[in-house]
Amino acid sequence: MFKFKKSSFVMTTVLAVGLLLSACSGNAANNNGGNAATNAGTETTAPAPEDKGSDKKIVLGFSQIGAESGWRDAETQSIKDTFGSDAQFELKFSDAQQKQENQIKAIRTFISQKVDAIALAPVVESGWETVLEEAKAANIPVFLLDRTVKVSDESLYTSFIGSDFVLEGQNAAKTMMELLGADKQVNIVELQGTVGASAANDRQKGFKEIVDGNPNYKIIKSQSGDFTRAKGKEVMEAFLKSDGKNIQAVYAHNDDMALGAIQAIEEYGLKPGTDIFVVSVDGIKPAFEAIRDGKLNVTVECNPLLGPQLKQAILDFKEGKTLEKWIKSDEDVYFGQKAIDALPNRLY
């Protein structure tokens, strides 16, 4: 027993030292960068010689929600690629693990590090007032990505770059009616996202607005599939067992749930895309492949590749141009041949 303890202590010490060393070496490079950046931020030091005499690096702090889906990941990657490859910029990335309080902490940290701009992909619309005021007081412009915030004073953020979830829901419904025919009797089951998530709320709202305007279309069941494949499949299985042949269409709040539902429909013995019309939102690559295979009918794009637009916005802001309050991301609705043509170019 004692022997073990001794050896374990040695082991621990070695581990601890090892970690500290690796942390130091790993951070050394970053630390220097951080130094340069913060110094530059205060504009007291002369630009470093290797900066070719041009202006200082622009430090961008990016607070991301997390990595809960492939879509989110594509967004992170787009930002990292855009700013990582550009010597003009330095990116500070912070992952909030789905928690708003972590995002607020991250923004506070960015402020204390005196970054030049903050990009925020808010996990929810509300609750940003206090911390955004702190950012404004520190004269740091804040750019919102993919979802906006509810604040009493719109000057708290510079611009919002992203899409409109309500519009996505509306487009999903409109395209469905276009392709199926507005006078056909259609019973729809809906696979919602995580209860309370704003993407789920708004995509439901937009879809319902259009469907309610047509008496032939009815949402007969609506259940949360938590934005995941596994839950989407499980819920769809239950729907098929209880309503079976009565279902003509599925509307999923994201592609992952739709892909799960497609599996459930196949295992039930029906043909997704033919027997049951499937429409979803996001436009990830596997969804395009499913359209090619005839299993998915429509995907409404929600573009995660916001890096280039964000970069342009920051540069414009630095030059003193006035920015639009809402910079809409480039988005489209894909189905049929259009989707198949677009497939080779899909990045995520």
């Binding site: 919602q192 259940q223 239950a238 729907f239 209880s242």
Partner: peptide, 15 residues
């Protein structure tokens, strides 16, 4: 229980 809730169409916010 879970499957029952899904088949019955209990609204997700009630689960």
């Amino acid at each position: 229980l879970t499957t029952t809730i899904y088949s019955m169409g209990v609204p997700p916010e009630r689960i």
